[in-house]
């Protein structure tokens, strides 16, 4: 695989303030790349630069070898852009909307009907072909927007937060669509605030914070790069007196919190912060069992991506 998107030392100034600070990243062909960060992190500015809608200040972005700076018109041939809010013309039908953008993308009028039908089928809007665009639901509009972006068969799809505002079913449908598009060889550059979707859909992720790329790689790589203490919750029967002493001896454990519930049978809940790896977790459980503790439940709050995100963005939620 070769890099289809190359962002090199991209710096963007706005009112003498850096909104993107020396951003460099590459996206491989056929990859689904997730671009996340809190509001104001510089995601939309980056996406607008990639979509040739914003002139960049420093650095360059190459898409399929074409520079957004020197040959934006060539970049437009290889990208399909879906903004967060799908712009519509109130007096157009779905077919007219796609026909207009097909014509604007210089697709021959004889090719357009078949192409539009195929795209509407892909996004499951075939039954809405004569519906007024204005009357479509938000989710339908987003699907229409995706089909519009696909009209000229672009190699790269740049999607700015397309999943926000969608219900879980619609989000699931979109995930299916993305996977179909990836199978068709499309490269997807996806920005989203919904971390769960990003982790499910994307091969690799870039996390932006205050204009900087603060983390970059696959989820596995990010998890191994950024080690965060995990929370382990144990429920023990009875009231084991020496549990505190035993846990304190373990070098990977910190922040021990023991609470007793005496409503029915006596139960003890222990919550600890654990910095060891999976092997050490298994070791801890086996030690407790071997020492005769009656472990009723053992929950490990894994090295979750949300925690990594919060850690690298210093808790600034999107």
């Amino acid at each position: 695989m070769s890099a289809i998107i190359q962002i090199t030392n991209l710096t963007q100034m706005h009112n003498e303030q850096k909104i993107i600070d020396d951003l460099s990243l590459t996206v491989e062909e056929g990859e689904t790349f997730g671009f996340i960060g809190p509001n104001g992190a510089g995601k939309t500015a980056t996406i607008r630069i990639m979509a040739t809608l914003l002139a960049l200040t420093h650095g360059d972005v190459l898409i399929d070898g074409h520079s957004v700076k020197s040959s934006p018109e060539l970049v437009r041939y290889v990208i399909g852009y879906v903004p967060e809010i799908c712009g519509v013309y109130p007096d157009m039908t779905v077919w007219e909307y796609l026909d207009f953008f097909g014509a604007a993308n210089k697709i021959h009028y004889r090719e357009r009907p078949d192409l539009i039908s195929a795209l509407l089928e892909l996004v499951d809007l075939s039954d809405q072909i004569d519906a007024q665009v204005e009357a479509l639901s938000f989710g339908m509009r987003q699907r229409l927007s995706l089909s519009r972006a696909l009209l000229h068969d672009p190699k790269v799809l740049i999607l700015d937060n397309p999943l926000s505002g969608l219900d879980p079913n619609a989000r699931f449908e979109f995930q299916e669509l993305f996977s179909e598009l990836t199978q068709l060889g499309k490269t997807i550059f996806l920005s989203s605030n919904i971390l769960a979707d990003i982790t499910r859909i994307c091969n690799r992720i870039g996390i932006m914070n205050a204009g900087k790329l603060v983390a970059y790689g696959s989820i596995k790589e990010l998890k191994s790069q950024i080690k965060l203490p995990r929370t382990i919750r144990l429920r023990l029967s009875g009231n084991p007196e020496n549990i505190h002493i035993i846990l304190e001896r373990n070098p990977y454990i910190s922040d021990i919190l023991i609470t007793e519930d005496q409503s029915e049978n006596v139960l003890t809940t222990v919550e600890i912060k654990f910095s060891g790896d999976d092997e050490k977790v298994v070791e801890l459980l086996s030690v407790l069992v071997r020492l005769g503790f009656h472990v009723l439940s053992f929950e490990v709050d894994g090295n979750r991506f949300e925690n990594i995100f919060l850690q690298v963005t210093k808790g600034t939620l999107g």
């Binding site: 607008r48 041939y77 712009g87 519509v88 993308n105 000229h152």
Partner: peptide, 17 residues
């Protein structure tokens, strides 16, 4: 009106000059 309808960006990224 294109800006208000959020369609201006969509036109700009087509092959139209």
């Amino acid at each position: 009106s294109e800006r208000e309808n959020k369609t201006f960006d969509l036109i700009q990224i087509t092959s139209l000059t």
